[in-house]
Write a protein that binds this DNA or RNA. Sequence first.
DNA 1: CTATATAATGCAAATAATTGCAATATAAGT
DNA 2: ACTTATATTGCAATTATTTGCATTATATAG
Lengths: 249, 249
Amino acid sequence: MLKKERQAYILQKINLHNKILSGVISEEMSVSQDTIRRDLAELEQVGKVIKVHGGAMSPSFHYQTWSFDDIYARDAKKEIARKAVTLIEDGMVVVTTGGTTIIELAKVLPTNLKATFFCGSVPAICEYMKHPNIEIIVIGDKLSKNSRITVGHQAIEQIRSLRADLCFLGINAIHPEFGVSDNDWDVVVLKKAMIKSSQKVVGLSISEKINTIQPIQLCPLDHINVLVTERTPFDPLLHDLRKKGIQPL
Amino acid sequence: MLKKERQAYILQKINLHNKILSGVISEEMSVSQDTIRRDLAELEQVGKVIKVHGGAMSPSFHYQTWSFDDIYARDAKKEIARKAVTLIEDGMVVVTTGGTTIIELAKVLPTNLKATFFCGSVPAICEYMKHPNIEIIVIGDKLSKNSRITVGHQAIEQIRSLRADLCFLGINAIHPEFGVSDNDWDVVVLKKAMIKSSQKVVGLSISEKINTIQPIQLCPLDHINVLVTERTPFDPLLHDLRKKGIQPL
DNA sequence: CTATATAATGCAAATAATTGCAATATAAGT
DNA sequence: ACTTATATTGCAATTATTTGCATTATATAG
């Protein structure tokens, strides 16, 4: 077998699986690992692969995973925000959680929209502040450094004494069986209160989080009225959720 | 599993959920926590994550910066902040108003200072958030767009139920006869409550505001214990105020 | 303060990479 | 075809990396 053939084979494998192990390839082609390593060295010179301990990876994969300068899946979140914002009508009282998706929502609010927003997330509030016609009610309490959102009894009380038309819920994990789940107890308690205080609950979730589970259950699926993702409403990924009564947007 | 794969997985998790716990990840991938910690250390080196006790979080969460570019008399305010910060001791409960001087104060807080800050000013809270050891209690209520501070009955109630060691008061006008005055009714009510709830009241004011009057009286001079300006304590400008019992710093 | 959990450090075992060297294969020129 | 020069390959010894464990230090929570 010629060297070029071998290298072509290696490239094909890498394009297929994004990575290879020197050991596996050397066995598959019954040559020594040294040979494979030398091939990889050459291919790296030309920029076709990236060598790592134990094998090599696709440079595109490498690039992809290592160059988030920005918010993860920002485009998807922008798309979600664009769709979600259509649900807000003038004069509504809206309560929102925090999270990067909510921030994108805050950024695309129409400037002429007149509404009242209840929110305990500092970054979200900062965005809301930029809109001239929006009234902001800050939910006050201890500020959780992790989530940059206020949590605690006082916050819960404040939410309880509120009847919102709409609740925008940043969703961390949603699953057809286990419903909506999250990983921070304080935040879960807060979100529960928000759901209870709202007529209509809108979940915002990038599709990646669909069919995933987090340690703490927030609510069963039927508490969520509308789920906004970057996919179209009839995407097969949403099929199970739609069957369970979720209305995708 | 390759090291880079693991790190890519960690990054994805962090981008999805904003934080991870070393223990959880190490179980998910069945490697030791040491390995995860070392991965996190590497990722931190490259600035991809921020290590915290027990795991790591997304850096975009940590370094959200605010640019208040055109602050009037910033140098004077910086000097005031430097002096004022010496009054805070470990373990104190501090309540502060908003305003650019308070923001400068927030910026010069020693990183090792452990204290609790009550505050309703969004920009100030953003600054406080950058300090790892400070506990922040957000005073919640309607957000005044002008002053970017929460005002209203709920805020007053929250302040009333509080006993602070120290109150840092951004001062808009101070006069030997008319005392401290301001121009926003909501803010005045709020500051009054803060004064009442604090052992010691520290006014922060650039010298330019000394001997000026604003429409609404906030309090007589004797409610202010210490006045911090950019001048030295024995500056002639402060003479009248000192004679009235104010202690300049 | 005390108890518990987490972090940092040094060490040892396992695995992988590198290098020099010898054997073999390939190519080129006569 | 024969010889020589060059390239490729496998092997062994050396070196570097990675990983887990034990120990000690540090931080967090009650």
